[in-house]
Amino acid sequence: MIRVPMEGKVLNENEKAAAALRAEFSRHNVFVVNLIGSPGCGKTALLERTLESFDPSRRVAVLTGDIQTDADAARLARYGFPVRQITTAGACHLDARMVRNALDGWDLANLDLLFIENVGNLVCPTSYDLGEAHKIVLLSVTEGEEKPLKYPGIFFKADLMAMTKIDLLPYVPFRADVAERNARQIHPGIEIVRVSSTTGAGMEDWLRWLRAASAGLAVHFMLAGNNCRAPV
């Protein structure tokens, strides 16, 4: 009997596909974020509000993942930006191959910002790198403030936590400070914004985070009316 060392990541095929995507995004200066959260936490609503705030000339696109239906793509397409639905037909997460296939026919040279809305799930999407620059975890105030402790993986890997539905804070027992403390217990460096896609509260903080996070890239998707250069 011999024992040989074995190297590499278990999800090697996905890692390879994700690395290829990341190189491709980097070559075309596309800033990519992967939005992850429970079903119903407001991923699509946040994207709707975000797209609504962008000038139509901005070079922004969305891939949205669901197990079934293209309902989210229909919602998001109303804002005039390119949107594609990825229907996973049962799979509980997106993987890099699905993203690559969904990008087929899109010229990345014409894009500055790509949102990937993952399947509603706090567990499985954690393990699958999609070539994104950042994972963003959404936690709505109608969930429990202990969620970061129950699902530590995604809070550990996400660079930003967006606390959503904050307009409901007066009506639910959710303690926002406790939720934030729990998130920081898992990931001390995690950044946090509080937003309401319904009232628009906190949207500026979210958009400011996006701008800051993409600052290293030649990305031009700022808010309409802001001082921004024309797309290169």
């Binding site: 009997m1 024992r3 040989v4 074995m6 990541k9 278990v10 550990f156 890997k157």
Partner: peptide, 14 residues
């Protein structure tokens, strides 16, 4: 402790 998901070894019978 962290987000490791990697191979360590393979035992073979020759």
């Amino acid at each position: 402790p962290a987000d490791e998901l990697e191979f360590v070894f393979l035992e073979l019978e020759e």
